[in-house]
Computed example of a mutant assay.
Amino acid sequence: MPTEISLLHIITDDYYHVIKDYEKDGDGAKKGGKKGGKASAAKADKKGGGKKSMKDGGKGGKKPKSKSKDNDSDDGGGGGGGGKKDREGWATDPKPKPIKPTIENPSLPDDKYGIERILKLVTCYEDPDYGGCTISGLLSSDMVLLMIKKTHLLDSVLNHPCTLVAKHEGRIIGICLCTDKGDEEWEAAWAHLKATFSSIADRDEILKQVYEGDDRQAGKTCQIHQLAVDSRFRRMTVGSQLVKACVKKADDERFHRVSIVCTDAFSEKIVKKLKFQSMGEPLHYKKFTHPKTGALIYKCIYKKPHKKMRHYALRF
């Protein structure tokens, strides 16, 4: 375990070096400004001001005079066009043109670094679930990085026929990481993490209601565990193309259904367009409390359109 923790500190330091350069270029968290960069809020929290930053973030800037009609963007509102948002959190600045990335199974081991880069830059701090757990104090940033490393980078995930990467000009800009429902390697890794760290077990307890109805068709369900796009390429249909390609792969591989838990309105909009059906009850970020302490877990990151987490499935 000491070796794992030292590696995590290296990963964390690397993340902040990357994000610092990223902000200098005018992309990513800096673009969101007070109006929305979760990465900025997570960074501020590192210095002790995370909750205040998110609270102030919802009040900064001028509100647009009218609600945008450009609500067909489904890959996130933070990148590719400035960051202005309407009252519902949707981007109102000019929508960037769609791009046609190369979508394929990862070429291993060469593509592993690119996948890790997206996981560190996007998943750990911008994902409402993981970011909320970090800012609220339920999980430390090191714990989130460990959890993701021990599950999302498993051989069964990286080599899954439906795991895909999106590449633009030779660089990975998006990922869709999958496993089979009931995969032994994933389940063993997850069980070990829960047995070792009580905070991870607590988080699992929190998410039980989201996965209601997900015990069926073990071995025949393709689960999308992570859908993420580099913030500089959002609103360019990259996420939609990844999910569409994943669904086609799953059908070709004779899976009976595809399952995904949407943590924000953007991924939810993608799967609804593809006729995914909602499963179980949603977890509303603004109201949900820790099952043991009663403390609010996600309220600190609640910001439209990040309202809830919900499980969706598409049956063939």
Score class of each variant (00 low, 15 high):
A191S: 15
Y113S: 13
D127T: 01
I175P: 02
K149M: 08
K97V: 15
L121Q: 02
R117S: 09
G79T: 02
Y113P: 07
E185P: 08
K167P: 01
T102W: 13
D111C: 09
G81H: 11
I172N: 13
A166V: 15
D111E: 13
G89P: 07
D110I: 11
T134L: 13
Y125V: 00
K85G: 13
I118S: 04
K112G: 06
G114C: 05
V122W: 02
W90G: 07
T123A: 03
L158D: 02
E88W: 13
D86R: 08
G77E: 03
I135V: 14
K150E: 15
E185I: 14
T163Q: 04
D111Q: 12
E187S: 14
I173W: 12
Y125H: 08
H168W: 12
D111V: 14
G131I: 00
V165S: 03
K85T: 11
L153W: 12
L121T: 04
P94I: 02
C124E: 10
N105M: 09
D93H: 04
D183R: 11
K112D: 10
C178V: 11
K150I: 11
A189R: 06
D93P: 01
C124D: 12
C176F: 01
T179I: 07
A189C: 00
W90Q: 14
A91Q: 14
A166G: 14
L145R: 15
N159E: 12
